[in-house]
Amino acid sequence: MLTFTIRRLFMAIPTLLFISLIIFLILDLAPSDPTASLPLTIPPEVRAEIRASLGLDEPIHIRFLLWLQQFFVNEPLNLFEQWTGWTIGDGDRTRVISWQTRSPVVDIIAQRMPQTLWVVGTAYVVGILIALPIGIYSAYRQYSIFDQAGTFITMVGFSVPPFFSGVLVIVIFAVQLGWFPSVYDTTHVVVDWDSFVVQLKQMILPVMVLALQITSQISRFMRASMLDNLNQDYVRTARAKGLTETVVVMVHVLRNSMIPVVTVIALGVPQVFGGAIITEQVFKVNGLGHLLIGAIQGGDIPTVQTLTFIFAVLIVLFNLIADVLYGILDPRIRYD
């Protein structure tokens, strides 16, 4: 398993380079433009000059190599300098600069990370923690009232898109009842109990909306997979051996049912870092999802490229983690 992991990690480098090239080509082909959001009163000659000042008139391979250098050499060196306080070389190297804000992309990403992790990350954890018991119990008591109600709620929950459920909870809890704020304050700092309560209050609505989607999806896969395994021969054997029901279900069946669930959870983690575009927009959380959609609409190629590349790294990494976990869950799975 260790050699497999190491081999895969090495494989990941050419894979990621290839992915970054494809992303760059797509972004370059896409018809968005950094000057699109400017008022029409700005004349075309000025727009052309703005594009030139962004380096857009360079040929594509130069721009791609420049991005590679900025991202893989300059940014890590810069980070290293910041951590250690040393200066390497002349210390003056161009970083990946966003076209919209004209500031280093990596700094903005670092600035957006806290609210994304607070909101989307919490929602993900909450969603998983609710989904697993629901899925297990629904399968164990298939067609019970609990199962039927769970099916109904999760299917409706998945069918209702966040652009609607978000507004619905705002109208109910922010406008009518006035319990929670409808606008997320990203500058809020948690220092004591009271400010933590404020933070909780502003997180509740977006977390609720997101967790509903996540719960629905994961609990369906959990339930289906449990059902498959509950009828297997080894379950009968285990019961015949006199194991308690809890041990049979929670150890034997659950462990064998986790493979699809682990897949789904691993696929979802990069999306946590990708933020939740619509939910972030509805609640004005302004996390990474908001950054990404804004950059896409603004034709800000360096930001989109950097963000998508980071997601790509996470995707490759978490799919690898899922593969390793398969082997732990079911030792018969071998990769070499």
Binding site: L27, L292, F311
Partner: peptide
């Protein structure tokens, strides 16, 4: 699976714009 990783990583919106344009 590397192909799957690639598709998972593609930025959806710009991809759509490209597909529509082409």
């Amino acid at each position: 699976m590397r192909l799957t990783d690639l598709f998972l990583a593609l930025p959806l919106l710009p991809l759509l714009l490209v597909i529509i344009m082409l």
